[in-house]
């Protein structure tokens, strides 16, 4: 066990945890930020996607000991009122079915658009194929990303 100061959604938080603890579980169990989801624990499904210095990472593979002095953003910190253009596009397209994977999908999509503001179909396929949606909402996810890219 060790103490860590980590920066989440703009705030420095102190956490006492095993250094190997993935940020996923630090967020969920220690910091009461359950928006980041557990899906597989092996970086295969993308449900746990957060931003590390603005880039999408799988938080189930990122130990707490490796993120000192870096900015972590979770779905809870993406916007104050759920009005990030990507969130708005998600609502406009009524993307979600069960909704469990959507936080991870949104965090991936935001990161994609940061790197490619006008993504092609293939860009979206390449970047978003790390996120599984068991309900199969992929066509709406793609449409929402393309819409968000216009704003």
């Amino acid at each position: 066990m060790a103490n860590f100061n980590i920066k989440v959604n703009g705030k420095v938080r102190q956490v006492e945890a095993d250094p190997a603890t993935p940020i996923l579980w630090v967020l969920r169990d220690h910091l009461d930020l359950p928006g980041t989801k557990y899906g597989c624990g092996v970086a295969q499904c993308g449900a746990c996607t957060v931003h590390l210095n603005g880039n999408a990472v799988r938080s189930c593979q990122l130990p707490v000991s490796a993120v000192a002095n870096q900015e972590i953003t979770t779905i809870e910190g993406l916007s104050a009122k759920g009005d990030h253009p990507v969130q708005k596009a998600w609502l406009e397209h009524d993307v979600a079915q069960c909704g469990y994977c959507q936080a991870g999908q949104i965090m991936s999509a935001v990161s994609l658009l940061k790197n490619k503001p006008k993504p092609t179909d293939e860009d979206i396929n390449a970047f978003m194929s790390g996120n599984i949606c068991r309900c199969g909402t992929y066509t709406r996810i793609k449409a929402a990303i393309l819409d968000a890219a216009k704003s």
């Binding site: 809870e76 916007s79 609502l91 909704g99």
Partner: peptide, 17 residues
């Protein structure tokens, strides 16, 4: 629209987990 849409896209605690 899905009445829980906003909660879903903002990561509110909705699920059993």
């Amino acid at each position: 629209k899905n009445v829980e849409g906003l909660k879903i896209v903002t990561g509110k605690p909705l699920f059993g987990l």
